[in-house]
Design a protein around this nucleic acid. Structure first.
Length: 108
DNA sequence: ACTTTGACGGAAA
DNA sequence: ATTTCCGCCAAAG
């Protein structure tokens, strides 16, 4: 039933947290890992999202710690992600970065 | 039981 | 500011 503290970070834990990111906000890979209880596992969050095959996960709300949309193999993916974010009100700065101060999901 | 495949982040130079 | 180094590992075939 409830959530137990797992001894490893699986993809579903990551997806659950990403589903909780409010519309119009962003979270960083490292932030999701830390919220899951695995502070230095940002890369795994990227791996999980790369393997994603689930429409219910708002993967576009996850960006890197610089406020930049991370590069990936598939051409056009970065531009697509930006459009999805802009559609929900996220405004990028002139360098193509999301101001984290303004849009990062605050939890605590 | 391997081997391959990937959307990171912090520190140091 | 930019580059390099290194720790990080689940899932699918």
């Amino acid at each position: 039933m409830g959530l137990m503290c797992a001894h490893r970070l699986n993809h579903e834990q990551i997806y659950s947290l990403v589903r909780a990111i409010p519309k119009g906000c962003v979270a960083t890979y490292g932030q999701i890992a830390a919220l899951a209880g695995f502070p230095r596992h940002a890369r795994q969050v990227g791996y999980a999202l790369a393997a994603l095959n689930d429409d219910s996960v708002p993967w576009h709300r996850v960006i890197n710690s610089q406020g930049v949309i991370s590069e990936r193999a598939r051409p056009g993916a970065v531009e697509w992600q930006r459009l999805l974010l802009e559609d929900e009100g996220v405004v990028f700065d002139h360098r193509g970065r999301v101001p984290l101060k303004k849009y990062q999901w605050q939890t605590d």
